[in-house]
Amino acid sequence: MAIILTSLNYKGGVGKTKNTTLNAYEVAKKGYKCLVVDLDPQSNATTVLIRTKQAHDPDNVFSFDKTLMTAVREESLENLAVPIIENLDLLPSYIDFANYSTFLDKRFGVVEEGDPDYHEITKQKITYFNQLLTPLKEQYDYIFIDVPPTKSYLTDSAVMASNYILIVLQTQELSYDGAVQVLEDLRKLAIEFNADFEICGVLPVLMDSNATLDQFVLANAAEIFGEENIFTNKIPNMARLKRFDNTGIIENDRHDKRVIELYDKVSSELIERINFFEKGETNDE
């Protein structure tokens, strides 16, 4: 049965999608069967991973048979997954996935907060994607979900499907505020809708590791989330990360390999943290 992980922050541009795709890429290289589910209509994770597929297999011409939104309307996500590299598949998103909330409203109805049916109908909406995902859970070891950087049915649906939440924290005030808001919303989902997940950690993305603001934000995060929940491995400001948006994830030169070596460590720590909750033991990798 797959372990399902969603990376969250309500502030855009903090590296959430990069960390989702790179962690999935590295966990797949460790021999685990992985799936990335792109629930963001901007489809940035899809773009990066399709470019990764093309970079690793340039002779293979790729085209979509159907979009994720089409599969949702057909009530089945099976046979949608696109192989990217060995052990790594993708459920690709497209701009039409912006219609997902409208789809839920049409399927389950529209109710205002305070309506007697509000809680039950909202729960049906935010657990529906997990029902669609369930048949795929036996096929993978890890499922990574990428979501938009905003509170919505999409993010709530991802949380309700997840076993673990990774909070991505860029060391600036707005990202910190976004992470704190995520924490509040996670508490509400756990209390009001019985969401069953663990926060496996906070992954810092440093603006400038020597800057006073970075250290200030990290200190505040440690106070709010707990020092033990802050990842030991932190993501420095690396220009090559931005290049992967254009090239896909590649390992062609020393700059690429420096990023890959870092995410090898980050993904190992991620697995170790998850194993702590799963089995009460650490990973020796």
Rank of each mutant, 00 (worst) to 15 (best):
N19P: 12
E228S: 10
T171S: 10
P148M: 08
R273N: 13
K257T: 06
K33P: 05
T247Q: 09
Q172A: 09
R254S: 15
E74T: 01
K257Q: 15
V259S: 05
K125Y: 11
T67R: 04
R107Y: 03
K16G: 04
L183A: 07
S175W: 09
N99S: 12
L77H: 01
Y25A: 04
A211N: 15
V259F: 04
E86F: 01
T47D: 14
A81K: 08
K257D: 07
R51L: 14
V82W: 00
I224N: 11
S7I: 08
Y140F: 09
E223R: 13
K151H: 13
E285I: 14
K33S: 10
K33Y: 01
E120K: 14
E113I: 13
L218V: 06
V82R: 00
S43G: 02
S101N: 14
L80D: 04
N233V: 07
E272L: 02
V61I: 14
A221L: 09
G248R: 01
E74C: 00
L241I: 15
M160D: 02
F62M: 00
K234V: 12
E86Q: 13
M238G: 00
V37N: 06
Y263V: 01
L206F: 04
A158R: 08
Q181A: 11
L203W: 05
V259D: 09
L166P: 12
C34N: 11
T70P: 04
S157N: 11
K16D: 07
N210V: 02
I260L: 14
T20V: 15
G178N: 04
L270D: 07
E272A: 11
V180D: 07
S175L: 11
D40F: 05
F103K: 01
S43V: 06
I95H: 11
E228V: 00
Y32A: 06
F97T: 03
Y128K: 03
I274N: 02
F244E: 05
E198Q: 14
G15H: 04
N220S: 13
E251L: 03
D284P: 08
Q170T: 04
D208W: 06
Y263C: 07
K33H: 04
I230Y: 02
F97G: 03
E184R: 12
M160P: 05
G178A: 02
